[in-house]
Write a protein that binds this DNA or RNA. Structure first.
Lengths: 405, 405
DNA sequence: CTTAGTTTGTTCATTCAACGGACAAACTTC
DNA sequence: GAAGTTTGTCCGTTGAATGAACAAACTAAG
């Protein structure tokens, strides 16, 4: 009971912002005295603090504002992707406190070597946390893969060439070896699109939309879905496989062995194929992906017809597939991430046109289409954020600091 | 606190079956004394009762079994479909207590006339409840339509030719007029496939599978999805629109104005088109649907090639579309209802073949495919069942009967 | 047949935490 | 300067879960 009311007040403080005890009492339906006691405990645990005195000219005694104190605890998010690692620490207010990003050719390295690098960055981040007086409360790794979340194992990551990698155990062992103690916080792995969807939900442009579909354009198409404020995982954790919807039987061959899968139409390979001839540097697989994308963007900005045409076709195909998801989920928002976001200016028009034409519910079912503003940090942010769920559900997991010496 | 623990014990009793107080205490983590007190209150409210004394040869004092007492309260489910009405009363243990079914050409009648008939049947069902000493606890109407659940309004029901029908208000007004008092229980409307999905979840062959996709084959294809034990509704309640996934651009024209929608391939019209020539009675729209379906089944049983071929093609198309949903949701079960269930013997093979070929997760993601055993009562059962959710969430909504005179 | 051991379910004193009301503090308004 | 308002704390009351003790109803062993 105490726990759930502590959680209630803490969540309210986070969602509604700083406010007086009296106002919290009215808004949560709790008693004033109860709120005082709960706030005192939250302050003691370093999760809340008193802010300014609101002397705003209203009659009566001025209110002593109470606000979220994020600085005492940190959530750590790690993203392992094809050519980079990101480690990022968030405070309870979702501000980025620490961010490291290093280029790493993950495909060329063994999983063990990659986890070594991850550990390296994590140790640096933990050191920085300690310096700032932050207690790390949890760490989540985002991987573009089918992930067995409960076991902490990456089952299959085609783009990393990983199969059955015990990520959680690997990281725990390495951190223990490096620091001499087992990490005191929980460590998890999850699919990158899932975590990015959570990141968008928690701190993106449409934060708080409790039903949203996140699509990320990379080599393939990744999907993450929030339903009723909770991440859709499915019975075995394999949900969100949207890339292989068969939308064009006469289309191109897909890596999955079939024909005309959605990702052959809207994945990066599809874009490059449509945008340029075979000998064009845009289609040179030895070049850096970002570089090739930049070339596409440059040509589009210059008004090159073929490029614009390719983008329009990708946009139409994106809208076609998105309409399926919008019909099925009726989300409040559709968030486009990955390269869909960086080339969004050219895709949004066709996407909206398709959605308007194909979504059965009136006015696209009230669904807004947004470009991700979190860019490539969405997954790491989502990962860092999940650590806070445990605190938001039960604030007593944050220990009361031992009395001053 | 009291409420949530009452709910905890009641749910446990329903899900786990009859058992002693001591066992409930162990299994719920509550104190023995607390459980005694909670059970006493549940008995007082007529939701539980003492059963047999379990003298099963074990050492120690024999256990006094406690079981769910469903008989005191009833949930009412109504299904309004193209050519029939069903009204059905369920007790808390999901047994059918009363069931009425009448043929009604809903398309030919005004919405007002249909609601009159619904009221007629509901009054009969309420009378029967009273005779059995049952208190009606809620009533839900299932309609094949886009429904605004919060407003209690059918927004659009193409097959009934309804648009913006205030169903809930209409039924409340008519019941009030007929009985002289406003109904004391909440009345709701919802989409039929949604309610059927809930019915399958609560009492179908795979009851308790907290992630399931329900597909019903009728004129079109209806979809209902349970995610994490809760019905997927979407931001505006328009989720589950699966019939218009564009799977065959070269296909037939769809009523929605586009081409090659999934339901042109697997809806009844598609089946009849593939199974017979234009002048065949199977394609005579003036005949009864059930009759035409019986003809198809008869020919299939007789081994007629063209019919079997058509069923195989429908099965393949069904599996193709289902693979999209299984990839997106990764459900524990896919339940086929409507005509998919009655002709399931001929569809299951091709469906499974497609799923195995197209679902990315290993072994179809652990998804079982089941034919609905609730048949055409699934939606009404689901509707009757939703009334119990409020009791299961807060058992105090069932009043303590006033002391004996 | 008696005694010991086990399990069930109730009773009761204790404890935890929310609630309602009283009240002091700190303001504005008249 | 008095009256009115709003905030936040204090404190006695209340509702409900807990733990321990205990009676009841059995089995098992000698």
């Amino acid at each position: 009971m105490r726990r759930s009311n502590l959680a209630l007040v803490l969540r309210h403080l986070r969602d509604a912002g700083p406010r007086s005890r009296a106002r919290i009492a009215v808004e949560t339906g709790l008693n004033k005295g109860t709120v005082s006691s709960l706030v005192a405990e939250l302050v003691e645990r370093g999760l809340a603090r008193e802010g300014a005195i609101e002397r705003d000219g209203a009659v009566g005694r001025p209110a002593q504002s109470v606000e979220l104190d994020g600085r005492r605890i940190g959530g750590i998010g790690v993203e392992i992707n094809v050519d980079y690692l990101t480690v990022l620490v968030l405070d309870l207010r979702n501000s980025v406190v620490v961010e490291y990003r290093v280029a790493l050719d993950v495909q060329a390295l063994s999983a063990a070597a990659v986890l070594d690098s991850v550990t390296e960055l994590a140790v640096r981040a933990l050191g920085e946390c300690a310096r700032l007086g932050m207690t790390p409360i949890g760490m989540t790794l985002a991987v573009p893969a089918l992930v067995d979340v409960d076991a902490g194992v990456v089952a299959f990551a085609p783009n990393l060439h990983w199969r059955q990698v015990e990520v959680v155990r690997g990281v725990i062992d390495r951190l223990s070896a490096r620091t001499g103690v087992r990490p005191a916080f929980p460590i998890k792995v999850d699919n990158d699109a899932n975590l990015a969807a959570l990141g968008e939900y928690a701190m993106g442009g449409i934060a708080g939309a409790s039903d949203l579909v996140y699509l990320t354009g990379e080599t393939g198409v990744g999907g993450g879905v929030i339903v009723g404020g909770r991440l859709l995982r499915g019975a075995e954790g394999f949900s969100g496989e949207v890339g292989h919807i068969p939308l064009d039987q006469s289309g191109h061959d897909c890596g999955c062995g079939r024909r005309g899968c959605w990702e052959t139409m809207v994945g990066l390979a599809g874009l490059f194929r449509m945008a340029a001839e075979g000998n064009d540097p845009v289609r040179d697989p030895s070049l850096d992906l970002d570089q090739r994308l930049d070339m596409v963007r440059g040509r589009a900005e210059a008004g090159e017809t073929r490029t614009l045409d390719a983008l329009a076709r990708v946009g139409t195909a994106l809208g076609l597939g998105a309409s399926v998801l919008v019909n099925v989920f009726n989300p409040r928002a559709l968030v486009l991430g990955g390269y869909f976001a960086s080339l969004g200016a050219y895709l949004l028009g066709p996407v909206m046109r398709e959605l308007r034409a194909r979504v059965m519910a009136p006015d696209v079912g009230g669904c807004r289409v947004e470009l991700s503003r979190l860019g490539f940090t969405a997954a790491a942010r989502g990962g860092a954020h999940v650590a806070f769920e445990s605190v938001l559900d039960d604030p007593t997991v944050v220990a009361v600091p031992s009395p001053a010496r």
